[in-house]
Amino acid sequence: MAVFDLILGLLLVILVRKCLSITDMFGAVISFMAFGLLMAVAWVRLEAPDIALAEAAIGSGLTGALLFSTLGRLPHSETRQPLVPRGSGSGPGYWLVTGFWWAAAMVLIATFVFSFQELQTPGLGGPLQERLAESGVLNPVTAVLLNFRSLDTLMEIAVLLAAVVVAWSMGYVDWPARQTIPSPLLPGVVRLLTPVFLLVAFSLLWRGSHAPGGAFPGGAVLAASGILLLLSGMTVQISPRGMSWLRWVLSAGLLVFVLAGVSLMAAGFGFLVYPEQWAGNLILLIEASAGVSIGAMLLALYVGGEPDMAPSQPNNPVSRPQ
């Protein structure tokens, strides 16, 4: 097992190095995606299935789609341009600096390994297990995210919503974006896959209460399904009324969260302090709305601007000749 961990760690370092030093953007993107894949394996080795799920959904799927779409929007000449001039990465100054950082990292790792004996029970695992029964859920990660430290999660969702607001304030995007469907195979496959995406997304959401899963991976899979629909040439007409619906869906996670907190406060429990008998249901409600909102927000971030409401193009999902 130790050998496996060593290979994994080495590959991760090599990939990061490639990712940062490779001379064209496309290679950097692929290296970064490979890094995301291996990172999920590393999380599995660290016995953190929740983070592995999130990394699988966000790190490999969404980031890949986002980066490739971004590359496609850059002018062609720019993607081929070296990120760093060829001359750099050699010479005594470079090796001095790199050597210093390597030495520092090695010392840090050595200190960590030697102090390892003192860390008998890492973190708060013990106290958490003791109080898991009163959290209303069986999965300790969900208990922390949505009960014991729910304020942190609330703030995370608020940050995500703020990011969407900033993205929308940058202006309108062409909606639908440019459609070039390379083959009729793609819409067919997507039609087949979308129900599976939805099934997995909602099952991840549902099982968050008793097993790894929950709002973030579920939302990410939901967003991935939306991105796949967009990539396969689906066009959407958004009426002003649909637009207001969209705004509600985007903010539903935060709204439900804050409403739950405030109404608990009004009932005399304190902000987001759940009474034990309702805790399970409240967490389910918050998690479900947060999951759908997170999916919508990630999709909105992928689109990258406020969708233009004006009917810019007739509903025409057929491929345009190149």
């Binding site: 496309f26 995606m33 894949l37 999920a40 599995v44 016995e47 299935p49 592995a52 799920l53 699988a56 959904a57 490999s60 799927g61 969404l62 890949g64 789609a65 490739f68 779409s69 971004t70 590359l71 496609g72 929007r73 062609h76 993607t79 081929r80 070039t180 469907i181 390379p182 793609l186 496959v189 896959l193 599976v196 995406f197 997995v200 991840l204 097993a211 790894p212 899963g213 991976p217 899979v221 991935a224 991105i227 796949l228 990539l231 396969s232």
Partner: peptide, 29 residues
């Protein structure tokens, strides 16, 4: 730990995304 089958499932589900994004959006033309 059978839970890691689910991680594999999410990977298998999303593996189509990157290649579709690449072909439809960023193939250097």
């Amino acid at each position: 730990k059978p839970i890691y089958f689910d991680v594999a499932l999410v990977f298998a589900l999303l593996s189509v995304l990157a290649v579709v994004a690449f072909v439809t959006r960023s193939w250097p033309h």
